[in-house]
Simulated assay, not measured.
Amino acid sequence: MSARPTPTARRVRLASELRKLRERAGLTATEAAKELGTSSGQLSNVETARFGVSAERIRAMARAYSCTDQELVTALAAMTGDRTRGWWEQYREVLPTGMLDLAELEHHAVALRTAYTAHIPGLLQTLDHAREIFRQSIPALTPPEIEHRASHRIKRQGVLYRPDPTPYRTIIHEAALRMKVGGPTVAREQLRYLLDMSERAHITILVIPFDVGAFPGSGQSVGYASGPVPQLDTVHLDQSHGPVLLDAEAQLAKYRQLLDRMEDVALDQEKARDHIHHIAQHL
C-alpha cells in the first residue's frame, strides 16, 4: 500500500465506502484488521485514504465483511484501477481543490443531472459566458486566474463530447435564461448554444418558466452524479466557497426527490426549446 498525502475526493469516497462496509459488518477496526491479517493502524490509513488499496485487497475486505453485493464490490474495485492523471491535474497548482474534485466526479459519473435557478449550467456555458461569470468573483480574480477557471470549465464539458458521452439532464429556470451575462450579444450566443446542445440525443434541457411561481428547490443549484451503482452516487452543491460533495444515503434520496419535483413543474424538452428560442429573439 502506498501513502497518498493529498488524496482526491474519489479516493476519499472509496475509503469512506470501505469503512461503511466494515461498520455494517459490525466489526471494529481491530477485529477487521485481525481478519485481514494486517494492523489496525494500516487499516485506519486505508479508511482515511492515506494509503491506496488494490482491487484484490478490496475483494478480500468484502469477503471478511460478508458483503454479498457483488455489483458494489466490483464498482469499488474499479475505483482503484484508473491510476492515470486526469486532465484536471494540470490545474492543481492554480485552482481550488474543489474544482478539480468536481471535474473528476463528472469524468467518472455514468449519468449527470443538474438544476440551476440563477445560472446557466457550467457544462453548457460558452467560453465568453464563463469568462464573464468569473469576472464577477469576489475577491476579484486576475486575468490569468479568470482564464484558468474558464478553460477548466470548458474542458469539463469534454464528458458531453467524448465517443461515449455521459447522459446529461438539466433543469434551468427562466431567470437564468434572461440574465444578459456579458451583454446581449454574449447572452444570445449562449442561448443559441443551449438550443444546439439540446438537439444532442444524450442531453435533455428542461425549463421552469416564471409562470410556475414557487416550486421545490427554488434558489438552489444542485448536481447529481450517478455512480456505477446507486450507493456510489454523489450530490454536489454550488457554494460561494466552492462545490460541496454529499453522499449520505438520506441526502441522496432527498436530492433525487427534489430534482424529480422540479422536473414535474418544468416544461418538457420541446416546449423548453421554444421558450429558449423566444427569449433569444427578444434579448
Rank of each mutant, 00 (worst) to 15 (best):
L258S: 05
L124W: 04
G122S: 06
R13C: 03
F134H: 09
M179W: 12
H277D: 14
D260E: 09
A266T: 11
R13N: 05
H202F: 05
S218F: 11
Y116N: 15
L102T: 11
P143M: 03
L141F: 04
P144Y: 02
I58R: 01
T142Q: 05
L127S: 13
Y193E: 06
D233R: 01
A49P: 06
H241Q: 13
T234H: 02
E174T: 12
P144T: 08
N45I: 02
E132K: 11
H275C: 13
R162A: 13
I146A: 01
Q70C: 03
I146P: 09
E106H: 04
L127V: 12
R188L: 04
H278A: 15
A75V: 06
V159A: 02
I276C: 08
L100V: 14
V222H: 06
R59E: 09
A272Q: 03
G122D: 01
A214K: 13
G98D: 05
L177A: 04
R149S: 00
A109L: 04
R188N: 10
E249P: 10
R162V: 09
L232Q: 00
H236M: 11
V265H: 08
G227M: 02
I276M: 10
E189H: 10
T142M: 07
L27A: 05
D196S: 15
S198Y: 03
E56S: 14
A9F: 11
S16R: 08
A214Y: 13
V212K: 13
L27N: 00
P167T: 03
R149F: 08
L141M: 02
F210R: 14
D264R: 14
S16H: 14
L100N: 05
R135E: 10
G213F: 04
T80N: 06
H119P: 01
M1A: 12
D211C: 08
N45R: 06
L232G: 07
P228A: 10
T126I: 11
F210G: 07
R63A: 06
R50C: 08
H108N: 13
E17P: 10
A60V: 10
H275I: 08
T234G: 01
D260C: 06
T30D: 14
Y161D: 12
R273F: 10
A214I: 13
V229M: 03
E23C: 00
S40T: 04
D268A: 11
I205D: 00
A225C: 09
T185V: 14
N45F: 02
K155W: 08
G213V: 00
L258G: 05
T30H: 14
F210Q: 15
G158Q: 12
D268T: 08
S44V: 00
M262V: 12
K271R: 15
E189D: 13
Q231D: 13
F215C: 08
E35I: 06
E71T: 11
H202L: 08
R192E: 15
E71H: 14
L127I: 12
